[in-house]
Design a protein around this nucleic acid. Sequence first.
DNA 1: TTTATCTACTAAACCCGTTTAGCATTGATA
DNA 2: TATCAATGCTAAACGGGTTTAGTAGATAAA
Lengths: 337, 337
Amino acid sequence: MKKKLSIVDIANSLNISKTTVSFILNGRAQEKRISEELVKRVLEYVKEVGYKPNSLAKSLRTGKSNIIGLLVQDISNPFFAAIARQIEDLAYKNGYKIIYSSTDNDTQKTKELIAMFRDRHVDGYIITPPDGIEEDINDLIRDGFPVVLFDRYLPNVPTDYVVVDNLFSTYNATQYLIDKGHKNIAFITYSSIQTQMIERLEGYEKAMRQSKLKANVTEIDFYASADSIVELMLGFFQKHPEVDAILFGNNHLCKCGLKATRKAGKRVPEDIALIAFDDHELFELYTPAVTAISQPISEIADNVIKLLMERLNNSADEQKKQHVTLATELIVRDSSR
Amino acid sequence: MKKKLSIVDIANSLNISKTTVSFILNGRAQEKRISEELVKRVLEYVKEVGYKPNSLAKSLRTGKSNIIGLLVQDISNPFFAAIARQIEDLAYKNGYKIIYSSTDNDTQKTKELIAMFRDRHVDGYIITPPDGIEEDINDLIRDGFPVVLFDRYLPNVPTDYVVVDNLFSTYNATQYLIDKGHKNIAFITYSSIQTQMIERLEGYEKAMRQSKLKANVTEIDFYASADSIVELMLGFFQKHPEVDAILFGNNHLCKCGLKATRKAGKRVPEDIALIAFDDHELFELYTPAVTAISQPISEIADNVIKLLMERLNNSADEQKKQHVTLATELIVRDSSR
DNA sequence: TTTATCTACTAAACCCGTTTAGCATTGATA
DNA sequence: TATCAATGCTAAACGGGTTTAGTAGATAAA
């Protein structure tokens, strides 16, 4: 292994001080009145020998790592994978690398991950926060780290976030089902105090209330296995034969719902109409194709990075936090016609 | 922001030298004959004030970053997302963090990413290598970095890798179709010189040859869009009405194949049987459910991490590279009955 | 002629750990 | 009583950059 060159090697080879080399490489030559001739000589030599500054040493001194910590709920969920993918691309374009991890919605794990990220001196944080993490995130903010939340937010945490209009999305989807003549519309969701889930519930309830229909809400434990969710839904069908449409709180629940309707021998949409929150490749290909509330993945990623970059460049007002709410799209397919 | 404590602060508070603190915190107290009483005092104080060593400074001095660079083809592909997820978990359990990125099978991008990882001083690399990256990876190996490849390998690169038995997998799947009485079995794959794709082709050809059946192979450009692949397949159906079964080279091609059969009005499996390489949630839920060659995701991740950890701990024979080949499972579903 | 200012650089401190080399002190051995 | 080893700890160097404070020499202003 050929030994890596250091800035001292460069300085010695050119018989100048390493300070000068550092200034030149950091574009501070003019400011520091280094002659153009020397600047040229140094840059040429550096290029010739392929010298690259040690980024650890740089980080140690400057306190900046050019790394962004990304905490998503679950990288193997296609929705989060797609967003992570976009965020990654955009971050690289802005000269930042990503360290990522999945929280599993596990508060303790998330606490440890945040501690690990701090330890690694990441410059900024992008997080889909689980419950109970308010304090840790407030600590980050208090200590001056840029934090952008997405998918959901924390009411008591003053920071930037990017979410979608969950309330209107489910309101609109429910209203669509009502307009189609459905009367017994159920909402199956996770039992969760996270903002996005609460708003989805509220949107559904609002539409039902406005049409004087009786709401029918089932809340499922977040940590329930897919199999047990299917069982639960089969029981639901038995108990509620009158239900003629279901709105699901997220894509995973809808997937379980598809298995359950199939097992129960229910015809979709003749016996029961279905709508999912979050679109998914599966929903497009499934027979019948499943109507879904589609979130604008690219826009979410764009806005997350934009907000974070503004903070990192200090171009955003320190006090004023930005809250971006994006629209979703109801993609109507066969499961609700 | 409360100032972060440094090792000097700890040493001063306890009126001892920072060397002693360092030895104690790194578990070298016995070796360095630090008295048990002092060890206890230091550990208690450190815990009390919550001191955490600056990992950058540590990395700078020791040359170890405790970061693993993970390069997958595409993190938004469920197969890679699932493996990345497992690798991440296992890496954390071993005290390592992951920096990841998607290569898009793009050689230039991958070169840049490897350079970036080197710059970040990652301790080891896990890579699904694209074509043309042999030299860069050989450089890594020459310079002493542990590198583990997976999903495919590079014949001219002497390093550890974890793959599945691609040849047997497609041989077996093809044989299964032959046993079912199919005579005109097509193989639709990507045009690729990557080992996994070549072996999948060979397995198919071997089975066809053994049964004296005529092979029918279509190679599709890797960068073709989903829509154009569907178009291409529709053309294929027109040109080859005799084909009564298709084996797909990967999950994405099969997804396109499902769209195409549907558009062409072909009944599955009556008109045409289908088998995918890589299982996928969709294949289980699709009507009819799709037969798939399932890769052992957990085992792949386990083995990748195991090999890498052996290298990182120097417990592996420097010269002898390990090649792990895992079995797949043919999950028979309705699409091929 | 003296003082001030500018130009073109540089020495040394600093970031925060780890590691090397070594120094008192005590007890044991010759 | 001199020599040696073990004990318990530490000063200083090091890793590789950035930043602060400053210097020597040339020119301009008073």
